[in-house]
Nucleic acid binder design. Structure first.
Lengths: 129, 129
DNA sequence: CTGAATTCCGAGCGTTTCAGTAGGATTTCT
DNA sequence: AGAAATCCTACTGAAACGCTCGGAATTCAG
């Protein structure tokens, strides 16, 4: 997430290399490479190789939500197995008939409310130069 | 959670044994024993040994929230390391100064809003006999 | 008093996830 | 030619999760 925020802050000024991001203290380079491979395949970023290369967002920061990033990197979102996005039909064969499931779904909605309504643009530094 | 709901539904009718709960299909007995050891030490349930023994809630179901149970069994609640209850002060030494932290705290509050405002009484079957 | 039912306790185990490393291949610019 | 970068895949170490196992202590019924 922090790396994506950096990328958003650099948006419009050409590609930003992972070594730049790594040096600003977020995460080790080799780990970033791995994460951005996934983000690229999901179409959130595009990479250009070579000397002046790096990654850039494929859309405006305001068009990329935190929820999208999380889903790409960690899969479907949910507080418990039975209330994860995508509805596993085999769960809740329990005796209580999952009285609790409804609650867990409420929890999930409360989570998504924030994640899906926050975009990378919301982390822009307000003091623009 | 489901086992606790069972216990709440049985509240006022003496102790309920873990083998009863296990047989109703929730979880294996030995695992339940382990979980309820923890719940007991936390003061949410009390156990009586022997033939007609079992566990019972130490308070009214309406006085025990889902949040309490979760905290006892899984520790402090939070969507990410940096936004967990109890505030680790050593986190967020990142370069972005954790622009994202505020958002994660909002996520946490949204989660707690449900968990801390739902009690075991809310899972009572409405068709009382 | 015996024996069954139950809680209580602590150690161990198999699987999965998380975060990260490692090594190398490919592309691109200077 | 060579440096800088992405790209790819496999591995690893630690921790957590869900669960098992063996046994001790307690309590009640007969």
């Amino acid at each position: 997430m922090l790396a994506m925020v950096e990328l958003a802050r650099h948006h419009g000024r050409g590609p930003l290399s992972l070594s730049d991001i790594a040096q600003s203290g977020e995460l080790p380079l080799s780990y970033l490479e791995q994460l951005f491979g996934t983000l690229r395949q999901a179409g959130l970023v595009e990479g250009t190789r070579g000397v002046r290369g790096g990654y850039r967002l494929t859309r405006e920061p305001s068009k990329i939500t935190v929820g999208q990033v999380v889903r790409v990197l960690e899969g479907p979102i949910g507080p418990v197995e039975c209330a994860v996005e995508g509805e596993a039909t085999d769960c809740c064969t329990r005796s209580t008939g999952c009285a609790t499931k409804e609650m867990w779904l409420r929890v999930r909605e409360n989570i998504l409310e924030v994640l899906d309504n926050t975009s990378l643009a919301d982390f822009q530094v307000s003091s623009v130069g």
